[in-house]
Design a protein around this nucleic acid. Structure first.
Lengths: 289, 289
DNA sequence: ATCGATATGGAATATTTATTCCTTCTTATT
DNA sequence: AATAAGAAGGAATAAATATTCCATATCGAT
């Protein structure tokens, strides 16, 4: 038995870095019970969730009881789940936050002005930022994820596509291209405010592809909810694990688009969407022959 | 008085992104009391702290009372401090956490075989091709051209935007973004086949931005012709000098998008369009002041 | 200098969140 | 098949955290 509860001596262990935590989990994994394995997998898989969400949310996402998480943390030697969370949180914050800080607010100083050669090399800036985000995209999405998405599309009787505001262009492209690729496609474009009617026809053998970015458009979130309720599988393309689209989605593709002067690009998203369509087109073609 | 408490109507505001939050703070800053300024500064300065610590901790670091933070959040229109925290937290997570992906847990799962070659690295190919086309874009469009385009947009009473088929996504983005930038915009989306009616209202002091690529969509070409006939200036975004959009257009921006397995990308076009919008937004902002 | 109005600190309260504990299942062993 | 030991679920409880409220202080106007 590992890390029995009350004992004051077993508390010496308890990993205090993400790495040691991970390796500890891997070490003990085989000896864990089914539920504990479930929690273990989740912690390894989604450390950001474990770090920044409440136990109730984590529990829901991992599909376990809150108490199971507490038990798991205790097995690892922590006094409670909170302490385990803190270890992960600190590490994630330390690693990734600092990097991001190059361009912190020029604060008040000319809050409005911008002045200088401002508009002069915007295109250059944009290209630069997009290059970075594309490279990141290449690294963050695996071929397996693309394949999985293709399978989902292939299986679907009809593909519903939802995307509003900033997500509208990639969504419209996806709808257009999938249709041309011979897939039955329904683009929820919200013309005349009829989006709710459009999505309500979705069936369990269809697929909803929902695209949304902060601040998540209400319509898309609602579509997601309706699809979920109607038992249809969902593929979400969004920008973070805290997106409202994540919960309940069979597959989630995370995209980190570039940002220039607080305007967000769409390049990475579009690139991903196009890759999806093309690989779907090729896959289905191969299959047909 | 800003963001009075109980009023149900004042709750409409409340920034829902870090950027809008920041600019709101900057805007109201001068009207704040001493303590509130202290909180404001801290929020601008240490968003990570505000996002991830408890009120008690934040309060201590900012050297104020917890209640002061709550009060501050309410001034900004939030129901409480928690909601303000959530906005910041989500954004920081969205921005920086995704970076941590890519090396996600293969851990157990025995890394199922990376099967078939065909669809396997489409994303990689795409990224590669897009990188090239972006670099090309940077070299082929000059800052002067962007400036000229801005001037044309600025002068126009209303901007009409036409783009169908493959050009639809960038056109829809342009329409969306220009509108948000405060420009009167009419997007010719052809809903219900009414595009001809939409464009016929164009005036000589308006501007048509027409986007089209081979094989040039008939609708766009017709829009172009109508605008010409009605004496409105035209800015065309297209892919060659022999495009039907070139003749009669006051300005032409040529884009050479990447092509992967005979599918054409949209990245360069979108990048150009976004650059246009941003530089317009900044230019017009400067002008206002 | 006095009054009124607004802002502040901090204790009291409400709410949310974590943890515990007891009952019900599971599963392995005889 | 019966039994016992461990695991899991979930309600109850404890802890923490956020929010409210009010007495006191500060500031500006007369």
């Amino acid at each position: 038995m590992l890390g029995e509860d009350g004992d004051p001596d077993t508390t010496v262990e308890a990993p205090d870095t993400l790495e040691t935590l991970r390796s500890t989990i891997v070490q003990v994994y085989e000896d864990l019970s089914r539920r504990m394995k479930q929690v273990a997998t989740f912690v390894l898989d989604k450390p950001e969730d474990v770090a920044f969400e409440t136990l109730a949310v984590i529990a829901e996402r991992a599909d376990v009881q809150p108490s199971a998480i507490v038990r798991f943390a205790k097995i690892l030697g922590y006094p409670g789940a909170s302490q385990m969370q803190k270890v992960i949180r600190d590490e994630l914050l330390a690693n990734h936050m600092t990097l991001a800080y190059g361009e912190r607010a020029r604060q008040f100083t000319a809050a409005s002005g911008e002045a200088d050669g401002a508009t002069d090399n915007i295109l250059g800036e944009y290209v630069e930022a997009d290059l970075v985000s594309l490279n990141h995209l290449r690294q963050s999405i695996s071929a397996a994820q693309i394949r999985e998405a293709n399978a989902a599309i292939a299986q679907a009787s009809t593909v519903y596509i939802a995307g509003f505001r900033r997500a509208f262009p990639p969504a419209s492209y996806l709808a257009y291209a999938l249709q041309r690729a011979g897939k039955r496609t329904c683009f929820i474009d919200g013309t005349g405010g009829l989006w709710a009617n459009q999505i309500r026809g979705i069936q369990p053998d269809d697929l909803l592809i929902a695209i949304s970015f902060r601040p998540y458009a209400e319509e898309t979130v609602k579509c997601h909810a309706i699809a979920l309720e109607r038992g249809a599988p969902i593929l979400s393309i969004t920008d973070s694990n805290v997106s409202p689209l994540v919960k309940g989605s069979g597959q989630v593709l995370l995209v980190r688009d570039a940002e220039v002067r607080s305007f967000r690009s769409l390049t990475a998203t579009l690139c991903l969407v196009q890759s999806l369509v093309i690989s779907y087109a090729f896959a289905s073609q191969e299959h047909d022959n």
